[in-house]
């Protein structure tokens, strides 16, 4: 079997005396779409922040394509092929849509800290940014400062910036948070399209999105993974029912 895209073992994180992540083992295969679900405060965002380098783990190991990345800086992890989006939209508000996307491509295309290339003359760079802009349906908003976009457009741009660099492991933190139904459908289609052939790890609260998109699901409760498996396995797991899903599904049925 090939090396997994992401392999986490024995991961813990304490903030002082508070144990937020209490020993996590998780494997995401290449090309797999993996969703992490769980109640509020279970540590989903902390887990994301540990994997992407925002926080350093207290103990345990995180391997990206077999290479240890625990404790590295975010930019070092990104250079090894992992890219993330944020729960709170995190773009470059004073720069245009096009500039946002072009900046997302710079390092991946090997420009590093160059001060001798003129970005306007780099054909592959500009075509790449234009192509992603087409993919996320923002071509009509090319020269609008990102801070002036609508919420759904900013979320789409956030995803565009995340996938722009061509990372093969994409991590999305609640990509549909705060969206209407039609906006959610649009974003889900977009995610399906742009993560084709890549590995995806996603935190999401919308169970429709999770069960529609994920190949496998992990349930995180109180800093530990209580179940991992295919959607139907997780749905039928009694422990998951008791800890989390039961309440959520009932609520959704009542609402639907």
């Amino acid at each position: 079997m090939s090396v997994p895209a992401l392999e986490i073992s024995g991961l813990t994180k304490n903030f002082g005396a508070a144990k937020i992540i209490r020993g996590i083992d998780l494997t995401v295969a290449r090309g797999e779409r993996h969703a992490i679900i769980g109640p509020n405060g279970a540590g989903k965002s902390t887990l994301f922040n540990l994997i992407t380098g925002r926080f350093a783990p207290s103990s345990g190991s995180i391997r990206l394509h077999g290479e240890e990345i625990g404790g590295l800086a975010p930019y070092e992890i990104n250079r090894r092929g992992l890219s993330r989006s944020f729960q709170i939209t995190n773009i470059f508000p004073r720069m245009t849509v096009f500039e946002n996307l072009r900046c997302a491509l710079l390092w991946a295309q090997g420009y590093r800290y160059s001060f001798w290339h003129m970005v306007g003359r780099q054909r592959a760079l500009n075509e790449g940014a234009e192509r992603i802009m087409e993919e996320i349906n923002l071509a009509a908003r090319r020269d609008v400062p990102a801070g002036l976009l609508s919420y759904a457009e900013q979320r789409a741009l956030e995803i565009g910036v995340t996938i722009g660099g061509g990372a093969d492991v994409i991590m999305l933190d609640e990509p549909t948070a705060g969206m209407s139904h039609s906006e959610t459908d649009y974003i889900v289609d977009l995610i399906r399209k742009v993560t084709e052939g890549r590995s995806l790890v996603m935190v999401e609260h919308d169970m429709g999105v999770v069960f529609g998109l994920a190949d496998r699901i992990s349930v995180l409760v109180y800093g530990q993974i209580i179940a991992t498996g295919r959607p139907e396995e997780v749905r039928g797991n009694p422990e998951v029912q008791r800890a989390y899903l039961g309440a959520v599904l009932e609520k959704e049925e009542a609402a639907g």
């Binding site: 992407t52 800086a73 975010p74 930019y75 990104n78 250079r79 890219s83 993330r84 944020f86 995190n90 773009i91 470059f92 508000p93 004073r94 720069m95 500039e99 072009r102 900046c103 997302a104 710079l106 390092w107 991946a108 420009y111 590093r112 800290y113 160059s114 001060f115 001798w116 290339h117 003129m118 970005v119 306007g120 910036v161 722009g164 660099g165």
Partner: peptide, 27 residues
């Protein structure tokens, strides 16, 4: 011209949102 180079463009990006720039591979 410096402002039109990759480093100059990323200077704007870091000004706007240093954290996001780090998640795009730039320190």
């Amino acid at each position: 011209l410096f402002s039109l180079t990759p480093l100059g463009r990323m200077a704007n990006a870091v000004r706007d949102n240093p954290e996001r720039a780090e998640f795009l591979g730039y320190s």
